[in-house]
Design a binder for these strands. Structure first.
Length: 809
DNA sequence: GCCATAGGTGAC
DNA sequence: TCACCTATGGCC
């Protein structure tokens, strides 16, 4: 019997999107297991690629010959599997539902560092002309392949390769480096150490201390850093110890712990009110009974959803089970992490984008080694390699960031429910403003609704909300960002030493440069969009392709010098605000001020300690902040999202306004919210003003029904892009024709239309949209499109399929 | 993604 | 007739 392995190779194409069979060499027969990463030779040149083992099988000699000529696995990259059976199955589901390659799905589930690094070298294997050896190879045996390609003598090198005098060598490099530090281990028994102590001179305190430490360690390893910090034994003393033969120096692995220098005060479960109690009960019953069910925990802001999560997780842990808690990236603040760490201590692993690649890898391994039972993280944390999951939670389930924007375009909510079914455990979707899809499913009893209607802090009442009609402010002649009403209210809070949060809707609020004489706006040379002014480095920047240029001094069209900054970035509003309230201390929070690691945390801490009066920021301040002294929240421009040509515009506006309003009056003092808008009668704003989700939901459902939008219809978006506009356009017309022919007459195929931003990075984008209720042939049609698109791809025509896209813009 | 191969083109 | 190009299929 011979062992063979089914391997998915790291070549993301349609034709290689299937398992390949490899022989397992005798030397690795006991090592190779399902779910491990391996290095295999692939293709004509036998270049080495990374692969994932899907299956290990044993074959007889006859069976083996029937399989034809097989290649052999070169090496294994892991000591133990990195993906278990569940995650391998999950990858298959993702591939099928997102129309992406298996390899891409597998890689998505692992920390980035576990993707291979490939290196290519050009190696001399036979005599080559002296001058090439000296000039190109610099008298070395091999050079990086890239160096050879960029050399002036590529032609000659190619010829030498054909004559087998040169060879290409491929290398697969593992990037998942463990962090190693110097440590030491005792070589003495307790008695020997005791004797050594006696031989010491009386004054040798430090060495005596070291010996005591060695006795305490027994055969454990101690790092030099720990010896210094915890036991005040310095490097020199340890070196002396080594010379004396007391200890040996060793390399030890340390886990990077991003929260090592934080202290977490343990917190106790809070007393739940009736509604929280009922919700918690429903969830824990399902944990106990090992029964899957999806719950929609709909609670007004401040209703204590988090405490329900915490107690649910505690229950899972009590049963020896594990739990995943997903939080949107921007809500994954130190405050949030703190709440979980202080309740569950170091059982918690945190996964989010602010961590370095190494830190992410270590947190991942902490989970994999079962050192952590609770995982708190953003979207990709849904793939945490936990076993025996008892509870999965998605907080702020309506957040669009739960859907990945590039392939595989999975939605964390779907993955969560899949894993919930696999582990037979409850899944809790929590939100104050659920997505229409989820709320409709709760209505149809697909999910079970758990309502929380009261604020947990009984003294805290829902804030009163006022809408200010900015059209009137304009006629009054005030050209500022602030209405008189808002200014009065801010002054009032400043007088009372209370705090204010002001939010700018980022979209449409970036600054651009316009000529006052001819109206010329500086465009990006690669994209159909205007450049944005960045004050931090005084450059004009394109938000889509990253193009940068200097701020023009004169208009390139009419040479006028009357070129001015338009629009209001947070910086400009900050200046305006400072002029109006010279004595107020203002904190600005936007991409510019939070770019540096930990800046986000520092700003919030400062505000929490009441070292500032006003917090001015973009959407990032709308979520999860809990500052009891904030009694006024102002939204400077509520409409910018409303005007987008997107069927979710109203929903997003309503959600944002409700979320940000929830930041006011979380303590004992009542809160107030001011919403400035040019559309005071729009239903999204009206219902947000009354904090009435139910009415908004009903109204919006009618709108969706009229427009044949989700949740009444399923949607698929297909985008074709090419450097030449007509190629992209022609392809999308062809796709529409094909789809109309494949689908039932009930399916609605819209388009093709040019995308809202036709050109990005010098590529033209055309899209088409399919709306449908039931289309048994759709999956097949999409798969066919994917297969045929492989050919187009070589001609530079890219086609992407997005199931249930976040927007059609 | 990359290589080997096939079939085409032009320069002599 | 060869050198060089691009388009295309296969990779275990």
């Amino acid at each position: 019997m011979t062992k063979i392995a089914q391997v998915i190779v790291d070549v993301p194409t349609m034709q290689t999107d299937t398992p390949f069979t490899y022989l397992i060499p005798l030397s690795l027969a006991e090592t190779v297991q399902t779910g491990m990463r391996v290095v295999v030779p692939f293709g004509g040149g036998n270049r080495k690629v990374q692969g994932f083992v899907l299956q290990v099988l044993e074959k007889t000699e006859e069976e083996l010959t029937a399989l034809g000529q097989l290649k052999t696995i070169s090496e294994v990259m892991d000591l133990s599997p990195v993906l278990n059976g569940e995650l391998l199955d999950l990858a298959e589901m993702m591939k099928q539902t997102t129309f992406s390659f298996k390899i891409t799905c597998l890689q998505t589930m692992l920390p980035r560092v576990m993707r291979a690094d490939y290196e290519k070298w050009l190696v001399i294997v036979d005599e080559i002309p002296e001058d090439i050896y000296e000039q190109v190879f610099h008298c070395l045996d091999e050079i990086p392949f890239q160096e050879a390609v960029s050399s002036e003598r590529v032609g000659e090198l190619k010829k030498l390769k054909r004559e087998n005098k040169l060879e290409v060598r491929y290398e697969v490099k593992a990037r998942n480096k463990k962090k190693m530090v110097q440590g030491f281990r005792s070589l003495l028994s307790f008695e020997q150490a005791e004797e050594a102590k006696e031989d010491l001179r009386k004054t040798a305190h430090k060495q005596r201390k070291l010996l005591a430490l060695l006795q305490q360690l027994e055969d454990k390893v101690c790092t030099l850093v720990d010896a210094n910090k915890k036991y005040q034994v310095s490097r020199g003393v340890i070196q002396k110890g080594e010379e004396n033969g007391w200890l040996e120096l060793v390399e030890v692995e340390v886990k990077r712990d991003p929260y090592a220098y934080h202290t977490f005060k343990p917190s106790q479960p809070l007393v739940l009110n009736d509604e929280q109690q009922a919700a918690c009960q429903a969830i824990t019953t399902h944990i106990h009974q090992q029964q899957h069910k999806t719950f929609l925990l709909q609670g007004v802001t401040g209703s204590g959803k988090t405490e329900v999560y915490l107690q649910g997780i505690a229950e899972a842990l009590k049963l020896g089970k594990t739990a995943i808690m997903l939080v949107p990236e921007i809500a994954l603040t130190p405050q949030t992490v703190h709440r979980f760490k202080s309740r569950f201590g170091n059982q918690v692993a945190v996964l989010h984008s602010a961590l370095s690649e190494g830190e992410k890898y270590d947190e991942w391994r902490k989970i994999e080694k079962k050192e952590a039972q609770v995982v708190v993280g953003a979207r990709s944390a849904i793939f945490a390699p936990l076993e025996n999951i008892g509870l999965i939670i998605l907080d702020e389930e309506h957040e669009t960031s739960y859907k990945q924007e590039d392939t595989p375009r999975y939605h964390a909510r779907n993955i969560a429910i899949w894993r919930g079914k696999y582990h037979q455990c409850p899944v809790v979707l929590g939100s104050a403003t659920p997505s229409l899809e989820s709320r409709a499913r709760a209505h149809k009893q697909v999910y079970q609704l758990l309502p929380l209607t009261k604020r947990a802090n009984t003294k805290a009442t829902l804030p009163s909300v006022n809408v200010v009609d900015m059209r009137e402010e304009i006629t009054k002649g005030s050209m500022q960002s602030f209405s008189e009403t808002l200014l009065e209210k801010v002054q009032h809070r400043l007088d009372r030493k209370e705090q204010v949060v002001l939010m700018l809707n980022r979209r449409g609020y970036s600054s651009f440069v316009m000529c006052r004489d001819c109206g010329y706006v500086l465009p990006c040379p690669n994209c159909d969009i205007s450049l944005t002014l960045h004050m931090d480095n005084l450059k004009m920047k394109c938000h889509y392709c990253g193009h940068e240029e200097n701020i023009p001094k004169e208009c390139p069209i009419c040479q006028s010098h009357k070129i001015r900054y338009y629009g209001t970035g947070t910086q400009k509003v900050e200046e305006e605000l400072q002029q109006l309230f010279p004595t107020a201390s203002i904190l600005r929070m936007d991409v510019d001020t939070t770019r540096r690691k930990g800046a986000h945390e520092r700003l919030l801490k400062k505000f929490g300690e009441r070292k500032a009066d006003i917090l001015l920021g973009t959407q990032m301040i709308a979520k999860g902040l809990d500052f009891p002294n904030v009694t006024l929240v102002g939204v400077l421009n509520a409409d910018t999202a409303l005007n987008l040509p997107d069927f979710r515009a109203s929903e997003k506006t309503f959600q944002l306004l409700t979320q940000v309003s929830g930041r006011a009056g979380r303590g004992d003092k009542p809160g107030e919210v001011i919403i400035q808008t040019f559309n005071p009668t729009h239903y999204a704003i009206e219902y947000a003003k009354n904090q009435d989700y139910e009415l908004f939901y009903r109204h919006e459902m009618q709108m969706r029904h009229l427009g044949n939008y989700p949740p009444y219809f399923f949607t698929v978006q297909i985008v074709a892009s090419h450097e030449q506009e007509e190629v992209a356009a022609r392809k999308s017309f062809e796709l529409v024709r094909y789809l109309k022919q494949q689908l039932t007459p009930q399916a609605i195929v819209l388009g093709p239309t040019p995308k809202a931003i036709l050109r990005i990075k010098n590529r033209y984008y055309y899209q088409l949209v399919i709306k449908y209720k039931q289309e048994p042939e759709l999956a097949n049609a999409l798969r066919t499109i994917l297969e045929t698109s492989q050919k187009d791809y070589r001609q530079g025509l890219k086609i992407t399929i997005d199931i249930e896209p976040n927007s059609f813009i």
